[in-house]
Design a protein around this nucleic acid. Sequence first.
DNA 1: TGATAAAGTAAGGCTGCCTGTCGATTATTG
DNA 2: CAATAATCGACAGGCAGCCTTACTTTATCA
Lengths: 169, 169
Amino acid sequence: MSRASGTPDPERPHFEPFIALVDKAARVLRVDMLRHAHRSGYTEIGDAHNAVFATLPPEGARAADMAARSGITRQSMGEVVRDMARLGMLEMVPDPTDRRAKIVRYTDYGKTVAQTGFTHILDVEELLRAEFGADDLATTRRVLARVRELLGPETAGEPLPAAVRQREG
Amino acid sequence: MSRASGTPDPERPHFEPFIALVDKAARVLRVDMLRHAHRSGYTEIGDAHNAVFATLPPEGARAADMAARSGITRQSMGEVVRDMARLGMLEMVPDPTDRRAKIVRYTDYGKTVAQTGFTHILDVEELLRAEFGADDLATTRRVLARVRELLGPETAGEPLPAAVRQREG
DNA sequence: TGATAAAGTAAGGCTGCCTGTCGATTATTG
DNA sequence: CAATAATCGACAGGCAGCCTTACTTTATCA
């Protein structure tokens, strides 16, 4: 415990805050995913679509559930889903058990796109394992997961305040 | 090397892609920083302001340089800087050596705000070290830094295409 | 000295996400 | 069973953050 609240000293040449490291890695990974999708010919994929790929199981799901799982609002998820339906990646069929709801499902094209993304995720995973070894990678995963638990009990699952910046003081 | 491009199997219950872990950790850290600022009374701080805090040294700098270092355009940096000047955190004085340029500097108030943020960064750093030990934390840092090098040679420094999503296919 | 580059700015666009609200339907409960 | 509440998806409107294009003013360089 050198000095947690004393002289901050972040102007010392090569100090890089942990948050900056994580942030830049996240940015690079996201750009890499997007670039891979675009280079695979799916040039209409955007950041927002990831919320679907990350939460839509092969058998389909309701938009409201997907929204809850990905931490965005129903409205936002609805918009993204409609957009992807327009692009021919998703289809929405009425839920026979609940006439308010619609079941969102991949089309064949959508499955292809998703598959491409998942494959790339596994390739990256493989690349990292080859680079660092399973142990260091596991350590990193554990640290990151714990960071989330340590600092984000309030943002774990909920749609994220978003008004974090205006109000909430 | 089990099967990098075979069955993706990401629908197996608890598989979480590395990218998702990094992304969520980054989000949590960012929200934490923002929340800390807001709770400290600086309720007008937003995500964008971080580009300034991260690149403006105590002695001041030009907006163009800060833009280059933080990877956003001059225009965006200009906007952020003007905004923070309006909030009384920065001041812009003409550069005596170049009449095109203005030197951006913290006001006393701005220094206080920045100091609060830096202190919190160090506190978090301290918290993580206590939680994981210096070794695991160092490993994580090394992995994240390397991820950036491995996957992001093109986005390292440049203003980031941003049209990554539309064009670039 | 004239062409080229650089600093800052203005104007306008786009993405991703939010809030508020609404109609339709389904649950709940007095 | 009827009234009320909750839920699903959609429409409307807004805002943050960032980008591109297009200047103006000043520096630099051939």
